[in-house]
Amino acid sequence: QSKDSFNVRMTNAYPPGSPFYVQGPGSPMDFCKKVEEMSGGRLNIQHFAAGELLPALEGFNAVSSGTIEMNAANAYFWAGKIPAAQFFTTVPFGLNTQGMNAWLYHGGGMELWHEIYEPHGLIAFPMGNTGVQMTGWFRKPVESVADLKGLKMRIPGLAGKVYSELGVTVRLLPGGEIFPALERGVIDAAEFVGPYQDRRLGLHKAAKYYYTTGWHEPTNVTELLINKDVWESLPKDLQMIVKMAAQASVTESLSWSEAVNSEALTDLVQNEGVIAQPLPQDIVTSLKEATFDTLSTMAAADPQTKKVYESFMAFKEKHASWAALSEKPFLNL
C-alpha cells in the first residue's frame, strides 16, 4: 500500500440488511463502494451495520473521540447532545426535500452544520434522503382533534412532543415491537417511514388506515459523520471524492425511494385493502400550531438552536413564496 492510501471504518445506526439505510442504491454501503472505485482503492471504507461494532446510537461519541472514523445515521439522533442537530435531518412542517437541499447546499445550512459540529471534532455531509414520509398507521380512522385524545401512538422525537400537546399518549417502542404492539392494539397508531419500509415491517397487517402526509418529516436527511482530524488528513482529491459520492447518494437514494414508494403504495392500496388518505384539515391546523409553539420554546432555550432555527425559518419563508408559485400550481394542475 502506498502512503497515499487510507483505510477507515464506518459504523451505521441501522441494522444489517436494511434497504436504503444500509444497502441498496444510494445507501451507506453503496457510498463506500463508490468511494473505493472513484479513488481507485486509495480510500477504502469498511462498513459495519448497527450491532456489528457499535450499538445503534453510539456513532456520534465514537467518531468524535476518533475511535471510529465515519458514521452513517440521522443528525436528530444526537438531539440529546446537540439540540440544534434536529434541524439537519428534518423539522415538522419545515422545508420539503427540495427546500432542504436548497438550504443545506446554498442557503447557509451546511456552514451552520459544520460550525456546530466543529467543537466536537466532527464534520458532516448529507448522504441520502428518504423524501417525504407518511403520517403513519392508525387502527381506527381519525376525523377530528378529539379523536386524538388518549390515542396511544408509537412516535419518537419532536413529533411525539407535538402530538402529546394534542392529547396523544406517546409510546416509545423499539422497531421490532411495533408490529406486535400495533397488531394487538397495545398502541392505536404507529409512525415508521414510508410505504416501502412500512410494508417490510408488515404494519399494514396490523392497521388499515394509512394517513398522509409526513407533516412531521417532510424530508429526512441521512448524515455522513466524519472525524475532523481524519477528514483533514485526506488529500484534496479524496475529500472531493467523498463529497461528490455523498452528493450522488443523496440523489440516488431519493430517486430510489420515490420509485419504490410509489410501487409499494399502489400495492398496499390495491392488494392489501389499505385506506390511504390525507389527515383532516383541522387536525393539521392544530398540529401546526403546536409545532410552532414547540419549536419556538426549543429555540428560546438554547442560543445555538436559536441561530439555526432563525436561519432555517428565514429560508423557509423565502422558499415557500417561490414554491407557492412554482411547485404548488403545478401539483394542482
Binding site: 461519541n61 468524535s64 473521540s65 436528530y76 439522533f77 444526537w78 438531539a79 440529546g80 447532545k81 446537540i82 466536537h120 419518537p156 422525537g157 419532536l158 411525539g160 412532543k161 402529546s164 406517546v170 416509545l172 414547540t294 426549543m298
Partner: peptide, 17 residues
C-alpha cells in the same frame, strides 16, 4: 473517558420530555 465525554456534552435524551 466515555462517561467524561458524555458529561462534557451534557448528554440527555433525544426525545423531548
Amino acid at each position: 473517558k466515555y462517561v467524561g465525554q458524555s458529561y462534557r456534552l451534557q448528554e440527555g435524551s433525544p426525545d423531548p420530555g
